[in-house]
Design a protein around this nucleic acid. Structure first.
Ligand SMILES: NC(=O)c1ccc[n+]([C@@H]2O[C@H](COP(=O)([O-])OP(=O)(O)OC[C@H]3O[C@@H](n4cnc5c(N)ncnc54)[C@H](O)[C@@H]3O)[C@@H](O)[C@H]2O)c1
Ligand SMILES: NC(=O)c1ccc[n+]([C@@H]2O[C@H](COP(=O)([O-])OP(=O)(O)OC[C@H]3O[C@@H](n4cnc5c(N)ncnc54)[C@H](O)[C@@H]3O)[C@@H](O)[C@H]2O)c1
Lengths: 225, 225
DNA sequence: AGAATAACGTGATATTATTCACAACATACT
DNA sequence: AGTATGTTGTGAATAATATCACGTTATTCT
């Protein structure tokens, strides 16, 4: 029974995919800690502030299954998620904009843990070209096509000032880039077949501000009633 | 009619809130460009890759309304969103961890646009304490309570290495911090009344990897059939 | 070994979010 | 002024997601 599950391409709801990334982060840290070999849906739920039913439902889309009274095998689950996210297969990426944020990304050692490697960083500013950022030398924009071809780069992190973001995106699209990791706060206009992942950090603060305002309001209401 | 809408606290679906942040970013850039005074739901939808109906439904939760054949007044809509996110009211925030990412955040000029100001940056490393990061001098951790009290800090950005993130969070909770902006990849364990906003950048790359794999698959399938 | 227990897996149900469909209405045109 | 047009605003219908409820099963206890 359930023979389709073996080789079938796993399909799951979008909402589940978002949580799979969280489970992956959590399981990674549990694997590092080595404190336990199994984990209950209840425990995962508590850490991620969701319900155990949600956790079990999400895992029901995976091959890995849990044992009653014991829980899920951390290594097994993590291995399946690693596989699902394609972490074993390395992706070469490049960064455009060697400023504060671009340099931080270039120095970041954690990309290898998720199957990515920064192979080059570019800047328009002649002052910066030739300087080292971590282990990479800053290259001029004209070298982008060469590096993209040589290293089969599909993904680019855009770390340039707001008002340059769109023109850099246009350039990258012209160079055949498949995915843009957009760290600017701008909404980019690109063809539909180009993937855009917005990483506008400031939006997180807007959420915090809103939640703080909500909790203030609740406190006020409680003291009123 | 609809008298409740005037002073009533606006309530909207969580999914709508997420999009309101996108509308805010988009309208901000349109306001800067000054190319047009009005925008149609159709245009917004195209830029954000959603449907015009979705845009109108979302805006139906706001006080601002559009005009048939003309669209929404950009300034008016942006003003309402600014108000809703509490952008006029400044929030003082601090950063813990003056490394690559913490320094990038400390140097970031855009926080004032969303009603936030970085008032201090802290590090455990004695080598870093006393050094300047942008216009701020790096302070030792013991100064956190004083700064938090003096500047009414409710929000802290955690930019320390993975394995220090939880202990820093514990410290901050003990100091009465209300919201944690977590830039580490770790899932933090904090009391329920403390807000945690995870800004794990690496998750964005996992999404990109997944979407790239999907689009590769589609291409393959199309050439097959 | 058999019974009791606690957690999993999942179909059924409830909730939330999106899309549809169309009346209402501002503008442009004749 | 009256008519045509195109877009808004929103209930109703549909779709997606989360929760519930409970049968199943691995483990522990007697
Ligand atoms: N620094 C942060 O913490 C932070 C936070 C949120 C968002 N952002 C966004 O990230 C982006 C980068 O921020 P930053 O703080 O690193 O800025 P930055 O000014 O430090 O760096 C920008 C770099 O881009 C280069 N550049 C300018 N135009 C270019 C072009 N056309 N092509 C290539 N390179 C070009 C500049 O020479 C500079 O080195 C901005 O859009 C910013 O809004 C940054
Ligand atoms: N740099 C990036 O682009 C990037 C990307 C994704 C995630 N992150 C995450 O952000 C965090 C910071 O990254 P980074 O690249 O800035 O690291 P980093 O090593 O450059 O900086 C970390 C800083 O924290 C300080 N520190 C260490 N322990 C501390 C403690 N207990 N209290 C206070 N300060 C302490 C260190 O002295 C150092 O200055 C990490 O968790 C990292 O995984 C960074």
């Amino acid at each position: 029974m359930k023979s389709e599950k073996s080789k079938e391409i796993l399909k799951f709801p979008k909402a589940t995919f978002e949580r799979l990334k969280q489970y992956h982060a959590l399981l990674t840290q549990l694997e590092i800690e080595q404190k336990q070999r199994y984990i209950l849906s209840e425990e995962i739920a508590e850490m991620l502030k969701i319900t155990p039913e949600q956790v079990r439902k999400d895992f029901s889309y995976l091959k890995t299954s849990g044992k009653p009274k014991v829980g899920y095998n951390i290594s097994e689950l993590l291995a399946e998620l690693d596989e699902l996210f394609g972490i074993k297969a390395n992706d070469n990426i490049i960064i455009v904009g060697a400023g504060n944020l671009g340099s931080a990304l270039a120095n970041y050692k954690g990309f290898q843990n998720i199957g990515a490697r920064v192979v080059a960083i570019f800047d328009k500013d002649q002052e910066k070209v030739g300087k080292m950022v971590g282990e990479l030398m800053v290259l001029p924009l004209k070298d982008i096509p060469r590096v993209v071809r040589r290293f089969h780069v599909r993904t680019v992190a855009i770390c340039v000032p707001e008002d340059a973001a769109q023109q850099v995106a246009d350039l990258l699209v012209a160079y055949g880039i498949k995915a843009i990791w957009n760290f600017s706060t701008r909404i980019l206009d690109v063809p539909n077949d180009v993937i855009v992942q917005n990483e506008d950090i400031t939006r997180g603060l807007l959420s915090i501000k809103h939640m703080l305002a909500e909790s203030e309001k609740r406190k006020y209401e409680n003291s009123e009633v």
